[in-house]
Amino acid sequence: MNSIQTLKQTILHLEEKLLQSHTRTSPEQLEELLADDFLEFASSGQVWVRDDCLGEGGVGIVSMKIYDFEIRQLAPEVILATYRVFDEHRVSNTLRSSIWKKENGDWKMSFHQGTYTKS
């Protein structure tokens, strides 16, 4: 497997981890995955920063599946991930984008945005 494919699998794994209930409800795990400067424009229209996610209960439980996952390397240690998510509870789809930065050897999400789609 070439390096871009390996990198794509690594970032996909991290994105999927952020959708898992045990990660989303663990401030400790979220702290490991979110950069200090984390910013999110949620599909709900809310704006979140890292501290908003680290409170008791984390960011809540979801049931979502990722598809059409792609990455683009913006710099040697900066990755843009784009994909779609199907939300099983809301029966809706969103377009997603995330920026991941490598910090001290670990990938951390620095930015995330979700946008509802019609299909």
Rank of each mutant, 00 (worst) to 15 (best):
Q73Y: 07
R96S: 09
T94S: 08
H89Q: 13
D87K: 06
I99S: 04
F69W: 02
L74D: 06
E70K: 13
A75G: 01
D87W: 05
D68V: 03
V78Y: 02
D68C: 05
E70D: 11
R72V: 04
I99A: 02
I66S: 00
F86Y: 11
I66F: 06
G60S: 10
S63K: 15
D87V: 02
L74T: 03
S98F: 05
K65T: 15
V91N: 14
L95V: 05
K65S: 15
S98A: 14
D87L: 00
M64F: 00
I61E: 13
I79N: 06
V62M: 08
I61K: 14
R96C: 09
D68S: 13
R96D: 12
Q73S: 13
H89I: 11
V59G: 07
D68K: 09
G58W: 01
V91A: 09
R96T: 13
R90H: 11
A75P: 01
L95M: 05
H89T: 13
Y83Q: 14
F86N: 00
I61G: 07
V59S: 10
V91Q: 15
E88P: 11
I61Q: 11
T94A: 09
L74G: 00
Y67G: 06
S63N: 15
I79S: 05
V91Y: 08
V62C: 10
V62S: 10
T82W: 07
K65D: 15
H89C: 13
E88L: 15
V59C: 09
R96G: 10
I66E: 00
K65Q: 14
D87T: 02
S98Y: 03
E70I: 05
S98L: 06
M64W: 05
I61F: 06
I79T: 08
V78N: 04
I99Q: 06
V62D: 02
I99Y: 00
S63L: 12
A81P: 07
S98G: 10
T94N: 01
L80W: 03
G57L: 12
S97D: 04
F69Q: 01
Y83F: 15
Y67M: 08
P76L: 01
T94Q: 03
I61P: 14
L74M: 04
F86V: 02
A75L: 04
S98I: 08
S97W: 06
V78W: 02
T82N: 10
R72A: 12
F86L: 08
G57W: 04
S98N: 07
G60F: 01
S97G: 08
T82V: 14
L74W: 04
V85K: 00
S63C: 15
R96E: 12
R96Q: 13
I66R: 10
V59Q: 08
P76G: 00
Y83H: 12
F69L: 03
V78H: 03
T82H: 11
T82Q: 12
Q73W: 01
F69V: 05
R84S: 11
V62P: 04
S92K: 15
T82I: 12
P76H: 02
I79P: 00
L95C: 03
D87R: 07
L80H: 09
R96L: 09
N93Q: 14
T94C: 06
G58D: 08
P76T: 01
M64G: 01
Y67T: 09
M64N: 11
V59Y: 04
V78I: 10
R72D: 10
M64A: 10
I99E: 02
I71D: 01
I66M: 05
Q73R: 15
P76A: 02
F69S: 02
A81K: 15
V91D: 09
